[in-house]
Simulated scan of single mutants.
Amino acid sequence: MMTNLFSVFDPSTSIYSLSLNWISTLLGLMIIPYTFWLIPSRNFIMWNLILNTLHKEFKTLIGYKNINKGSTFIFISLFSIIMFNNFLGLFPYIFTSTSHMTMTLSLALPLWLTFMVFGWINNTQHMFAHLVPQGTPPVLMPFMVCIETISNMIRPGTLAVRLAANMIAGHLLLTLLGNTGPTLTASLLSLLLVTQIALLMLESAVAIIQSYVFAVLSTLYSSEVN
């Protein structure tokens, strides 16, 4: 019996006080490497097309003048690990690591901190100029500096909360609807199954969209420090 509504998202599987839920994050390390030893299949070719498309888009977002070789692969890897964990969470009895701030903040905070340290050390004047948007009246400049500073400081938090909240919302709705199944009649149960399938399809789209949004926003944040 659940102690509260969100207890289904708490890590509970453990052996000798060692939580096993987070092992779901490492399942890709056991599955993905085997594809490199197989004859290229349609899935492998499709994944390569997705990666090439992401590489071109991230290269455009960063800017051709500021891009360093291999920098887009950081964000492609970020997109891949988030999307993989989002999809794993849709399977029964697999822990959704991306619905926890421990996971999302661990991805967002080091990225943001690295961008800030790199920008303030190498492009100090550009970072100061970025605090005041072009065309701001002199009277509003102190307020704009405060607003821009606050908006910059909350970026890792907004990245982490956006991903975790979207993953929790869909899973929570699926859990709530699924718990009403034993009390429904046969006609309502068929309607519930159709609704659950539709929500599962929606969650599959959300899994891709949220990983893409996280990677794109990280790319935009990195382009601002160059």
Score class of each variant (00 low, 15 high):
T3P: 05
T3C: 04
L5V: 08
S7Q: 10
S12N: 06
L18M: 06
N21D: 15
L26G: 07
L29K: 04
M30G: 12
I31C: 01
Y34L: 15
F36Q: 05
R42G: 11
F44N: 09
I45M: 07
I45L: 15
M46W: 14
L49A: 15
I50A: 10
E57K: 14
K59W: 13
T60C: 08
L61Y: 12
I62Y: 10
G63H: 03
K65V: 06
N66C: 05
I67G: 00
G70F: 08
F73H: 05
F75H: 06
S77Q: 01
S80W: 11
I81Q: 03
F87N: 04
L88V: 05
S99T: 09
T104R: 03
T104A: 02
P110L: 04
W112N: 03
L113M: 06
F118L: 08
F118M: 06
G119V: 00
I121Q: 07
I121R: 15
N122D: 06
T124Y: 15
M127C: 00
L131M: 07
V132N: 03
Q134K: 15
G135E: 01
P138Q: 06
I147N: 05
I150N: 01
S151H: 10
N152F: 12
P156V: 01
G157N: 02
G157M: 08
G157T: 05
V161N: 07
R162V: 03
A164Y: 09
N166S: 10
A169K: 15
A169I: 07
G170P: 00
G170W: 09
L173Q: 13
T175S: 13
L176G: 08
N179W: 14
N179P: 00
T180L: 12
L189N: 15
L189R: 14
S190P: 02
L191R: 13
V194S: 08
T195K: 10
Q196N: 12
L200I: 06
M201H: 09
L202F: 15
E203V: 01
I208P: 01
V213Y: 10
Y221C: 09
Y221I: 09
Y221H: 12
Y221P: 00
S223F: 02
S223V: 01
